[in-house]
Write a protein that binds this DNA or RNA. Structure first.
Length: 258
DNA sequence: CGAGTTTGACCTGCGC
DNA sequence: GCGCAGGTCAAACTCG
């Protein structure tokens, strides 16, 4: 069981590494186990994802959030290879999944790996139509294929022109009073936006390091304002600022957390 | 005075 | 084409 899921996970990572050889996903410790991928329901969005969940040791969580003051037992990690150009409704679904995944997968200490097909624009748009069509959400792969094959040339052209290579995303859902978790990097806020149907604004941060284009998005969960959703986009081209101050020694964490 | 934050304007993509 | 919503910009502001 676990080995099957592991194989599927590795395949997912491999695909993205092909698409973004310069990006490189973080790798999981070899002792981590991967239970069977959960069924994500039958809607289109979920069909377009390869979704996995796994038991998340607290020690690993503390590695991911080295400087965090939050309760790690309440931390749920989620990896997204999503895109800022993902249709908003599907982005909401992403968030919904993150928001509800602890219900779906049995509580905290879970790591959920997701791969959105939007990042597969670099590979091809085989799932794009699924992502953008509510009607194609039948949950049947054959139907998806059929639907895709029926896309007009005009539509395909439009899809191609929209194709972009986006940085992968890495998303945390954390129970915390503080909005901005101390992850070791230095961030500058560049925007804030009130998102529809939420009382809490979403904040946008950029890494202050020169030549580092990593961004992060911080928002509170509408359903549970105690939960903070932090979404990282991109990969740091440098060590955390704390490391630079305290030690020049590279840590294994840096590779894990970008 | 420099670094960081705030906030309204602007840009872009998507659905209708 | 238009309106909506998310994301970004940049000037003004605040703080140490």
């Amino acid at each position: 069981m676990a080995s099957t899921s592991q194989a599927m996970l590795n395949q997912g990572l491999f695909e993205d590494q092909e698409a973004h050889p310069q990006v490189g996903f973080f790798s999981f410790p070899p002792n981590m186990t991967f239970p069977a991928p959960p069924l994500m329901g039958s809607n289109c969005h979920n069909q377009s994802l390869k979704t996995f969940s796994t038991t998340m040791p607290c020690s690993l969580a503390s590695d991911v959030l080295p400087n965090s003051n939050i309760s790690l037992s309440e931390t749920l990690l989620s990896s997204l290879s999503s895109s800022t150009t993902t249709p908003s409704k599907h982005r909401d679904h992403h968030q919904d999944h993150i928001a509800n995944s602890d219900h779906n997968f049995g509580g905290p200490h879970l790591l959920s790996l997701q791969r959105s097909s939007t990042n597969l624009w670099a590979l091809g748009e085989f799932n794009y139509e699924c992502l953008n069509s509510k009607r194609s959400c039948g949950g049947d792969d054959h139907l998806h294929q059929h639907h895709h094959l029926g896309v007009s040339a005009l539509k395909m052209k439009k899809m191609k022109s929209r194709r972009k290579v986006r940085e992968p995303r890495f998303c945390f859902k954390t129970m915390s009073d503080v909005d901005v978790l101390d992850d070791g990097y230095k961030w500058r806020k560049y925007g804030q936006k009130v998102v529809k149907n939420t009382q809490h604004p979403r904040s946008y941060y950029r890494c202050t390091q020169d030549n580092c284009r990593v961004k992060k998005r911080v928002e509170r969960l509408a359903e549970d304002p105690r939960m903070v959703i932090t979404t990282y986009e991109g990969r740091h081209a440098h060590s955390p600022s704390h490391d630079l101050e305290e030690s020049q020694a590279p840590s294994q964490l840096n590779n894990f957390f970008w």
